[in-house]
C-alpha cells in the first residue's frame, strides 16, 4: 500500500458516498445516469468475486463490501425508491454498445484464460468507459448539479491517483499490470474535458453548463 493508492481508494469511496447522500438527502436522482450506476455495480460484481476465494486483508475485504453495497443501494434508489425522479429521457446511452465489445475483448486480451481472470479483465475494461452514459447525459441536459460535479471529480481523481500508484509500484516493487494501466489511462483521459470545466467553472463558484 502507498499514499497514492490509499488516497485513490478514499477518493473513490468519497465519490460513492457523495452520490449516495445526494440521492438520499434530496430524495432525487435528477441528472444522474442510472445506466452508469448499473455499469458500476456490474464492474464491482465481476471484479470482487474473489471475495469468495481469497482473503487479502481486512481493508481489502471491507472496502469491497462497501463498494458493492453502495453501488447496489444507489441503483435501487434510482430505479425503485426515487424512480419518479429518474430522468430516463436523457439517460439514453446505448450501453450494449459498450458491454458486448468489452465482453469480447476480455476474452481476447487477458492475463489468464480462467473464469475469474476473464471476469476481472472485463471489469477493468468496463470501468474505463462506465462513466460515458453519465457524461453523455450531462451533454444532453447541458448542465449538472454542483454536487454531481463533485461526485465526478472524486471519481475521476481516484483513477488518476491509481496511475501514480502504478508508477510508484513499478519503480519500488517492479509490479505492473499492463491491462489495468492502459484501461486506467483511457478512463482518466475521458475525464479530462470534465476536469477542465470543473476547475474553470465549478471551483470558481459557477454552475457547470455546456456548451462551455
Amino acid at each position: 500500500m502507498n499514499i497514492f493508492r490509499l488516497t485513490g481508494d478514499l477518493s473513490h469511496l468519497a465519490a460513492i458516498i457523495i452520490l449516495l447522500l445526494k440521492i438520499w438527502k434530496t430524495r432525487s436522482c435528477a441528472g444522474i445516469s442510472g445506466k452508469s450506476q448499473i455499469l458500476f455495480a456490474l464492474v464491482f460484481t465481476t471484479r470482487y468475486l474473489d471475495l469468495l476465494t481469497s482473503f487479502i486483508s481486512l481493508y481489502n475485504t471491507s472496502m469491497k463490501f462497501i463498494y458493492i453495497g453502495c453501488a447496489y443501494a444507489t441503483v435501487y434508489m434510482i430505479y425503485a425508491k426515487f424512480k419518479a425522479t429518474y430522468d430516463g429521457n436523457h439517460d439514453t446511452f446505448r450501453v450494449e454498445f459498450l458491454v458486448v465489445p468489452i465482453g469480447g475483448l476480455a476474452f481476447l486480451v487477458n492475463h489468464d484464460f480462467s473464469p475469474l481472470e476473464i471476469l476481472w479483465t472485463f471489469s477493468i475494461y468496463l470501468e474505463s468507459v462506465a462513466i460515458l452514459p453519465q457524461l453523455f447525459m450531462i451533454s444532453k441536459t447541458g448542465e449538472a448539479e454542483t454536487i454531481t460535479t463533485h461526485y465526478l471529480f472524486f471519481l475521476g481523481l481516484y483513477r488518476a491517483l491509481y496511475l501514480m500508484n502504478w508508477i510508484w509500484r513499478f519503480y519500488f516493487e517492479g509490479f505492473f499490470d499492463m491491462i489495468a494501466i492502459v484501461a486506467g489511462v483511457v478512463q482518466t483521459i475521458l475525464y479530462c474535458d470534465f476536469f477542465y470545466l470543473y476547475v474553470t467553472k465549478v471551483l470558481k463558484g459557477k454552475k457547470l453548463s455546456l456548451p462551455a
Partner: peptide, 10 residues
C-alpha cells in the same frame, strides 16, 4: 504480472 498471483488492488 501480479505479486503471488493475487490481486491486491481494489
Amino acid at each position: 504480472p501480479q505479486p503471488e498471483g493475487k490481486k491486491d488492488e481494489l
